[in-house]
Nucleic acid binder design. Structure first.
Length: 522
DNA sequence: TCTTGCTACAGCGTCGAGTG
DNA sequence: CACTCGACGCTGTAGCAAGA
């Protein structure tokens, strides 16, 4: 048994305890490596003590080494029976140049984008287990669905089978860390059995409850009909886990079932092209409230456009509470220098840009000649085109119709039709109605991740997999479209509407029974 | 009544990579 | 090389509670 990041050796110690409880009779060799000398001292002390306590029962061989597991000079063995580890988490953003080089080199062909340091441990671990081995680790959640780890997931499945993938939905399980944690267990040889999905919501008590349930579940033996489906956590066999590379991320059992039911349904990515909004690089200088804009001289105001930020969308209703400095429009004079700034937007330049010059110029990829520009202005927003817009994080009702195309997505996304350049108001408002229906929350939970205790991540990579009716289909009932359009119009302008009628309509579009909604409360 | 601590929540900025 | 896209991983802070 090997732990390449053993710390004070708690996992190794627990293995001994478990073997002893199970009356193990054979031999066991424990190997632990760690980069911290202090941890190694503790591990040696603890394991020596533990060995002393139980050495009468079976033969124990312990080797604890002070070494860096990622150092090339230390080869990982290739016939380990059990790897149990909690490797260090280190995001690409926080790595120094040397660490980045090391990750690149260690991952080789599997290197893409911005992987986490822990992925190197995972991959080396998978290659190290014997033909009849098991690897179990605690990892950051990005291992499960980030594009940066896609090739690693692919290579893992080529070699071994997943046994359990668990997500503990609370980001504060470890003190001094704020990260969503995943449990991953995989085994060799491949046996084509279904893997278990284990899910807990964002409440702290759900994480401990699901682990208690797992112990019970294991104690009574695995049984595909034995599903744990509680309020806040679930455990179930997931037939698609071992051939799904896009996401291993566990969902609640109800969300999982709903998605399976709608497997063949059209998806957001079939109908929409979604784009990420502006990234300012320094919000305080570029985003102004409506009142502030109105205090600027009139001739400067045309250099600003209403912005989509979180407060801009409330119950599918669009509000121009915030404006962004957007001088890129075609009908405006080009601003290429500080002279131009002084000429066209003097008041704004003096009050908001100049006082922040040092901060603005320190942004990456910005220089003396470009310090007043947005980090990413998004060329597609220059032309005003009708679009659906959404916030960054949210739920049903966090979507709205921007018929004039005036709005610039900043902290949010814009949806355009894929097949047509013309996005009619009828379609726009009809989709607004669908996306404001409470049932959408169930669908969002089945494709996306929670962030910050509750709201869902509306990022492209999640939401593009959400089932959604194709209102452009030729066989669509025109009465339905008309009704949706009318309701969408009411919602969009903040007026009252018949929400029960909308629910019925949306469920019928999804071809679901109208009683599904109560069954599917998430 | 003022100060400090804590919890809940909502975005932000950097950067790898694709395109032409 | 210039330009553009979207992924990624936590950080900042308002507002309330507890303590002085």
């Amino acid at each position: 048994m090997f732990d390449p990041a053993c710390g004070s050796g708690v996992f190794l110690k627990e293995v001994l305890r478990q073997l002893s409880l199970k009356n193990y009779q054979g031999k066991v060799r424990l190997e632990g490596w760690d980069i911290s000398p202090a941890a190694i001292d503790m591990a040696r002390f603890i394991l020596l003590y533990e060995k002393d306590q139980i050495s009468s029962k079976f033969s124990i061989d312990v080797e604890i080494c002070h070494r860096d597991s990622l150092d090339r000079t230390h080869q990982w063995s290739n016939d380990v029976d059990i790897i149990l580890m909690n490797p260090p988490f280190l995001s690409w953003n926080h790595m120094n140049k040397k660490q980045r080089e090391l990750v690149k080199e260690s991952l080789g062909d599997l290197m893409q984008k911005t992987p986490d340091l822990s992925s190197v441990f995972l991959w080396k671990g998978v290659k190290s287990i014997s033909s009849k081995g098991v690897i179990a680790c605690i990892l950051p959640t990005s291992i499960l669905d980030a594009q940066s780890h896609l090739k690693i997931r692919e290579s893992i499945l080529a070699q071994i089978d997943l046994y359990l993938v668990g997500k503990l939905g609370n980001d504060l399980l470890f003190s001094n860390a704020e990260i969503y944690t995943t449990i991953l267990v995989a085994q060799s040889p491949k046996n084509n059995k279904f893997a278990l999905s284990l899910w807990a919501d964002h409440k702290l008590e759900s994480s401990s409850a699901v682990l208690r349930a797992l112990r019970r579940y294991n104690y009574y033996g695995r049984d595909p009909f034995n599903v744990v489906d509680q309020n806040g956590f679930s455990i179930y066999e997931n037939p698609s886990l071992n051939d799904n590379l896009i996401s291993w991320s566990p969902r609640s059992y109800k969300a999982f079932n709903l998605l399976r039911q709608l497997e063949k349904f059209s998806k957001v990515k079939d109908i929409f092209k979604i784009r990420q909004g502006v990234l300012t690089g320094f919000k305080a200088a570029f985003l102004l409230s409506k009142e502030t804009i109105e205090a600027l001289p009139k001739k400067e105001r045309k250099f600003f456009r209403p912005a989509i930020v979180t407060e801009s969308i409330s119950n599918s209703h669009l509000l121009d509470v915030s404006y962004v400095f957007y001088p890129n429009s075609k009908d405006l004079p080009k601003i290429d220098s500080e002279n131009d700034l002084d000429k066209y937007v003097e008041a704004y330049y003096q009050t908001y840009l100049l006082p922040n010059k040092s901060k603005l110029i320190s942004r990456s990829r910005k220089s003396e000649n470009t310090w007043w520009t947005l980090n990413e202005y998004r060329a597609w927003q220059v032309d005003r085109k009708p679009k659906l817009v959404s916030t960054c994080f949210g739920k049903a009702g966090s979507f709205a119709w921007d018929g004039s195309g005036d709005y610039v997505a900043v902290q949010g996304y814009a949806w355009f039709l894929k097949k047509s350049n013309i996005f009619s108001e009828k379609l726009g408002l009809a989709y607004t109605a669908i996306l404001s229906c409470p049932f959408i929350n169930n669908l969002l939970a089945s494709v996306s991740n929670h962030v910050g205790r509750g709201q869902l991540d509306l990022s492209i990579r999640y939401i593009e997999n959400m089932p959604i009716p194709d209102l452009t289909a030729s066989n669509l009932d025109l009465d339905t479209l008309e009704s949706l359009y009318k309701i969408g119009g009411l919602i969009s302008s903040g007026e009252d509407f018949d929400d029960r009628a909308l629910n019925e309509l949306v469920l019928s579009l999804y071809q679901l029974q109208s009683n599904t909604i109560s069954l599917l409360e998430l």
